[in-house]
Design a protein around this nucleic acid. Structure first.
Lengths: 351, 351
DNA sequence: TTGAAAGCGCTAACAT
DNA sequence: ATGTTAGCGCTTTCAA
């Protein structure tokens, strides 16, 4: 006959339990568990044995309150389904893994109100720093960041006035450089496809830089199309089909990201369109996916992982030095990768 | 002449500051900020005005300690770069957004030791529940989960003995069903490509189910190749090229995920291989990417978002009802999508 | 409807 | 090397 021990709603273990089980004061147990020196080897072993035996898991809530130290870094990004952000996160983790700091991720879905809520929520856990995508925030969000008293790093975008530090690329400049490359290639009837602008400041800035630089060359964007929702190969394919049906005389398609760009490229290749002679194509980001196609889409590589690393390093340094801000500015230069789809226009449509 | 106020290392605001600014006791301020009833309209407004004025952000650390309530759900997944997991997260968020609960994500990189560390770290914040990918854990991890006293939901995989609740698909069964479909198509010389097994239990189970079911049909897997690191189109392309060079008489390639499957498909199409007459292909997951290709890769759709939703619902229900566990089991049936690459073998290689 | 007191589980700072 | 005391900023509980 077996007796089943039903512990009612188990009270979680506390330091006191470990203290009693090991016959050592709570304070010393705390020291052992935090690897502070000044504890004899014998005591240390006794305590660790007791803690393991009981299955004690420290309570960081209490620890953080008592020490007013919270080793969390709030990371606020618009989305996880755009691979760009997991890549940034990978860079952040890589750096923070070497420190006692831990990233905690919040997702805003590109909505300023959601950003505000997420930020408030995260700040209420009193993190040691904030890494936040974008440089455009609601007034309330900006006020919270400024009042937080912790290092803030805005990432991805350097066009604007940061709260504290900033790490990213100039999207305006990226747009300009793409425009210049297109003009050099002799393309002149340009179509643009991208996300709806109010949601995506970086895409907007690229587009602005792009059209401005084209204008200087006397070229204009002939057709544009904007979509909402996730970027996918399929979306790029469908939008491209629609645009080419509408504006058959285009000779270059600029996409606001590689995913729809690759979809458009697949469509053009299947239609037997001569690339890059009759039609040029370019995306943005330099995502790994592009390496999987036998025709390489032209793009501009933004070093997402490097952005994450640089941002995390700034926060880690501030925390280590006890500084409340850094005021650093890191602008990375995106690199144009012409691939196989941005060359020289050779085929001219019949007038 | 302007005077610049340099507040040294700003002490974060507390309830007391709001209390003093509004002339209301801390207790009442706390009530207002938590939307508890029993506060007069006049007082409420005074307090809210003061809090907004000061830019007060509550300290959840202290709140959680005092109330021993933490509205966090630990979500532990192997990776963010495999789109499958962001999709699960989207489902989880969708449900938790309707509750006071918040997901907090930890990433294990498919490493049991890392899973152990991440789990320990997250449990030390005393979350209200845990959603964790996979049903295989180290002994220590399993012990922590069992001792946690909170609802645990293991997701993705149902083949095994769960700690508490489980939501997912049977990967063994998925492998078997793919094998049967392949046998029905008349394919008989099978190649398999996937991740190194010890890292990926679900891939292993699919492979086991697959080979077992094939064996029953008298078919065997002729060639296999396993890789480490991220799955990419390029990897699929390269591995496929290598395998076909090595084993030119294969008539079906089964990939452990859609990403490498799609890469392999692109390679085969470019080589002019007749699909599905001479060669069949299949992946696993049913990712959106596949919709972007004009040839649809055969796959089995696992409802990741639905898995996330179901898991979050279990946790939310437990928390609402104050239960420490649910013991639920939700097995979703993956659906075979034959697409354009799993048909009937019609072309037989010259002997 | 409001307030006062006690304490959540830990750690800083000071003994010893 | 170890122990004691006094909080951290909030919420619970009870009293008014």
């Amino acid at each position: 006959m077996s007796v089943k021990l039903v512990r009612e709603k188990r009270r979680p273990l506390t330091l006191r339990d470990v203290s009693e089980a090991s016959g050592v004061s709570e304070m010393t147990v705390s020291r052992v568990l935090r690897n502070r020196g000044d504890v004899s080897q014998a005591t240390r072993e006794k305590v660790l044995a007791a803690a393991r035996e009981l299955g004690y898991v420290p309570n960081k809530i209490a620890g953080a309150l008592a020490s007013s130290r919270v080793n969390l870094v709030a990371v606020i990004i618009p989305s996880l389904s755009n691979m760009v952000f997991p890549e940034v996160l990978a860079g952040i983790s890589q750096i923070l893994d070497e420190t006692p700091l831990q990233p905690v991720v919040g997702v805003t879905q590109y909505k300023p109100e959601k950003e505000e809520r997420v930020l408030y929520e995260m700040l209420s856990w009193r993190p040691s720093g904030v890494i936040i995508a974008g440089i455009e925030h609601s007034e309330a969000s900006r006020a919270m960041l400024e009042a937080s008293g912790i290092p803030i790093v805005e990432i991805m975008d350097t066009d604007g006035r940061p709260v504290d530090s900033v790490v990213g690329v100039s999207h305006r400049r990226a747009g300009r450089e793409m425009a210049k490359a297109i003009a050099r290639g002799g393309y002149s009837r340009i179509g643009f496809m991208g996300t709806k602008m109010p949601l995506d400041h970086r895409a907007r800035k690229r587009f602005e830089g792009f059209t401005e630089a084209l204008a200087k060359e006397g070229i204009e964007v002939v057709d544009t199309d904007f979509y909402e929702g996730p970027s996918s190969l399929r979306k790029g394919r469908e939008m491209t089909a629609a645009m080419l049906a509408r504006s058959p005389d285009l000779d270059f398609l600029y996409y606001s990201n590689d995913m729809i760009g690759a979809g458009g490229m697949l469509y053009c290749l299947e239609q037997g369109i001569d690339i890059p002679g009759r039609m040029g194509l370019a995306g943005f980001n330099g995502v790994e996916l592009l390496e999987g196609f036998s025709t390489r889409l032209a793009t501009m590589n933004t070093e997402r992982k490097e952005i994450g690393r640089a941002a995390a390093e700034i926060v880690a340094r501030c925390v280590a030095e006890g500084r409340a801000s850094a005021g650093e500015r890191v602008e990375l230069a995106p690199k144009l990768l012409p691939g196989d789809t941005l060359g020289v226009k050779t085929v001219f449509p019949v007038e």
